[in-house]
Design a binder for these strands. Sequence first.
DNA 1: GTAAAAGCAGACAGAACGGTATAGCCCGGT
DNA 2: ACCGGGCTATACCGTTCTGTCTGCTTTTAC
Lengths: 187, 187
Amino acid sequence: MAKNMRERILAAASNLFQARGINATGVDTIVAEAGIAKMTLYNHFKTKEDLVLEVVTRRSREFAERISARLDKSVVDPTEKLYKLFDYVGEWLADPQCSGLPFLKASAEFPQPDNPVHQLSAELSQEFRDYITGLAREAGIREPEALGLQLTMLIEGAVLSEQLSKGSNALEHARQAARILIESAKR
Amino acid sequence: MAKNMRERILAAASNLFQARGINATGVDTIVAEAGIAKMTLYNHFKTKEDLVLEVVTRRSREFAERISARLDKSVVDPTEKLYKLFDYVGEWLADPQCSGLPFLKASAEFPQPDNPVHQLSAELSQEFRDYITGLAREAGIREPEALGLQLTMLIEGAVLSEQLSKGSNALEHARQAARILIESAKR
DNA sequence: GTAAAAGCAGACAGAACGGTATAGCCCGGT
DNA sequence: ACCGGGCTATACCGTTCTGTCTGCTTTTAC
């Protein structure tokens, strides 16, 4: 049971943060959702902020690894990976329990640059961008940083648009834009 | 003075929401920043949420009008407007007191779809997208909705990237991507 | 000039916040 | 058999939250 506790707390917190926002979710609510005692939570996490940091990290890494695992497994052609990237983001976005890019939402709730959650979000966002830049580099793009950033912006914008107005088919349009940008960058 | 009170409250709230986030800013803090009595605030706004709604609306409209006013004044060629759009967003973004697109941050802090702030954010986001789609239509783009959404995603993503890691030159890369997309859409 | 409107200061209510303390229970290891 | 560590339940701390009330002063309008 001991090992499960931590996971249960993280899962409960993750769900609540996603549904109501981080600042709007109290410790008591997390405790109730996880079905545990308050002291148990504070036995595993020093403060609420520590819990927030770990939840944000996990969710972001889960997202990134879910995408990259699929890409590594099913695609070999490096350029094809860039296209497939949008397919897999689309699948992730179609999941009804998906609620946006974790590091983006976290950074919006903690705008102050010196805030630990904000700094973590910036790092995770950078990781994601670096990953896409890496894909562009493997695909032999001349300026992989430029295309990587552009594709990242498209994905972030698409996720936001889809969240704000469902059914806008944002990701499909992002994919079409990406194709044009990739082709243009290869020439 | 009576007319100024409202503006002073809105200005103070706007600054604080921008700097610390909406949920993290208490009414007492707003009152202190505005240099007024608490009852004066509640005399002008029924609840904090009412104040939030008006602040978000104003900031979003200010942004949109600042961009569109410049475009209408200085540019005549419809296609050129699409390019200049990124210049003016860039200038707005370079303003050190700028802190992201108001409706995006607000929607992140109030994720629940039935929340009034979230709904307002969705409407304001839609307004912005419609405006850009209108520009695309005037420029004779074949599928203005598609390009409008794509450019919107680029702008939103660029603003986020710039906020999360300053000096990434996100908007410049967004502009380059936009040029490619626009040229491709015109052909 | 005077009365009504609006602003002020500060106390206050009731709830929620993050976090702590305490006392007991249950269960596994030896 | 028993001991210790993790979990529970509950009460509690001080602070902060939104929102209200009151009594007094200033401004505004006619």
